[in-house]
Structures are given as C-alpha cells and as structure tokens.
C-alpha cells in the first residue's frame, strides 16, 4: 500500500510499544526561519503524549505537521520523515481530507462555526459523505454525550453555537472532531483560554479518552502534563530553533530527568 490509498487503511494491531505516528529527523521551516529541527518523536497508540516547553519552541508547529495543516501556510516547508505505520504523511499526494478526518484537532481558542449547534456537527458529517439523517443523529448524540454536553444542549440544538459559554464551546469543538470518529486527537493548549472549572472539565474528558484515542496535547501547564500524560516530550528553543531535548515516560521526565534543562524546567527554575 502507498500513501495514496491511505483511506483504505484499517486499524491494525500493533505492539503496544510501537509508535502509531513516528517523526524522524523532522524539521519545519517558515521561509528562512526554522520553527523546529531534527525532531525524533513517537506518538504511541491509545496513549496521551504531552508536549511541553517554553513559548516559541515549535510545539504547536509540530502538532500542525501531524495533520498537515502546515499545507495552509504558504512558506512552510516540512522535511524529514513522518510516518503512520506504512504511510508517509509528508507524501505530496497524500489525501489530506482523509488524514484530517482521522486526525482531529482542538485549538487553544474555541472556534465553533457561527452556525447552530446542530449545524456545527452536521456540516462536517455532510462534507465527509455522511448525509443520512439517522446516521447523523446517532453520531451527534454519541459525540455530545461523550463530551458531556448532551444534557446541556439537547433542547437548544438549533441555537447559535456562539451563545454557549467558552467551556461549552470548547467541548462542542471536541464533539465536532469526535463525530468524524477520528483515531488521533491533536490538542493545542485546549484549556488555556478557559476558566478553571471548564478547564478541569476538558482535562477530565481528555483523561477519559485514554485507550480509545491517541492523544497528543501541547500544554504550558506542567501540572496538567503530569496529571494527564503517559509520555512527555520537552521542546526547547536553542538559538531560535526548537528541538526535543528529552522525551519519555512522564514519571521519568518529572522525577528523574536526564537533561539539565529538563530538570530546571520541571522544577520551575527555567522556562
């Protein structure tokens, strides 16, 4: 199989230790500015991988490579290797529509479309060819249940999504990704624009996803990474370019960091 028939890919049983998505020597340049370089990092299936580090070290850019959102940035140039099993995610002819259906993404700022709650969810479904009312209904209810929003909105599905609170909007965005039944979820600081209570709510949801989805979450909140993640990767800015200075099981990163910068960072001395 090649990158071109990515859509026919079935979930395969992989040994638990193998990475679902593996980056090897991955670099991203915007024009002549390098966002990050030489990144080797694996995202393991069913686990939560936290990506931490100070601002401007390429964490979000790395996330954007995983669903090829970098294609939208005119000057972005990705080099190196990025593979999902046998598939080359950097292949120029890869079906990004299909990739993005299987890799959902949540951004820092909730971004529901200025449509009704219902349309926010049917629109992506219809675009991906799921047009039967009953199918839509079933998937939407399931997704809204999953993010704990169903009871809050089931009587006002026709209201504008913009009328929801920030935390509800973020959970709606999560549901919007989930209706497409993705395998991987990318989260770019999903809690940082929310109040503490909404933030905890979203964090609990991420917690509940362990095992069912493969999650990569960028966060500034080290305590959150410690609570949530199975594995943690620390990005660091060296001479204007992001690098991974250390990656491994979260407990090891926080308790016995190998890299001196990691030690300073997790103990709050640097970063």
């Amino acid at each position: 199989m090649t990158a071109l028939d990515f859509s026919t890919h079935q979930k395969t049983d992989r040994p638990a230790t193998a990475a679902l998505i593996q980056a090897h020597d991955l670099s991203l340049r915007y024009g002549n500015k390098t966002a990050f370089a030489a990144v080797d990092l694996g995202i393991r299936a069913g686990e939560i991988t936290a990506i931490v580090g100070p601002s401007g070290c390429g964490k979000s850019s790395f996330l954007m490579c995983l669903n090829r959102l970098t294609d939208l940035v005119p000057e972005a140039e990705v080099t190196g290797q990025l593979r999902w099993g046998d598939w080359d995610l950097l292949h120029p002819k890869l079906d990004t529509t299909c990739l993005r259906r299987r890799v959902g993404m949540i951004l820092q700022k909730p971004n529901p479309f200025p449509l009704s709650i219902w349309k926010n969810l049917t629109f992506p479904l219809a675009e991906h060819g799921i047009k039967r009312k009953a199918d839509q209904q079933q998937r939407i209810e399931q997704a809204l249940q999953e993010v704990g929003l169903w009871d809050e909105v089931k009587d006002r599905l026709k209201d504008s999504a913009l009328q929801l609170s920030g935390g509800q909007q973020q959970r709606l965005c999560l549901a919007r990704a989930l209706v497409l039944q993705p395998e991987v979820l990318l989260m770019d600081e999903p809690c940082s624009a929310l109040d503490p209570i909404s933030s905890r709510r979203v964090e609990e949801l991420v917690q509940e996803m362990r095992g069912r989805y493969t999650v990569a979450i960028v966060t500034h909140n080290l305590a959150q990474a410690k609570r949530l993640a199975d594995r943690t990767a620390v990005f660091w800015n060296e001479a204007g370019t992001g690098h991974v200075i250390e990656a491994g099981p979260t407990q090891q990163i926080f308790d016995q960091p190998h890299h001196p910068l990691t030690r300073d960072y997790v103990s709050g001395i640097q970063g």
């Binding site: 669903n67 939208l72 299909c98 700022k109 200025p114 629109f123 675009e127 990704a177 497409l180």
Partner: peptide
C-alpha cells in the same frame, strides 16, 4: 480560527 477549524476537520474549501 474558522478557516483553521474547517481545514483541520478536512472540510472542502468550497463548503
């Protein structure tokens, strides 16, 4: 955010 959100859901540009 709308464009980014739509693109990350794999929605067509026309849609």
């Amino acid at each position: 955010g709308y464009r980014l959100g739509a693109a990350s859901l794999g929605l067509s540009r026309w849609g």
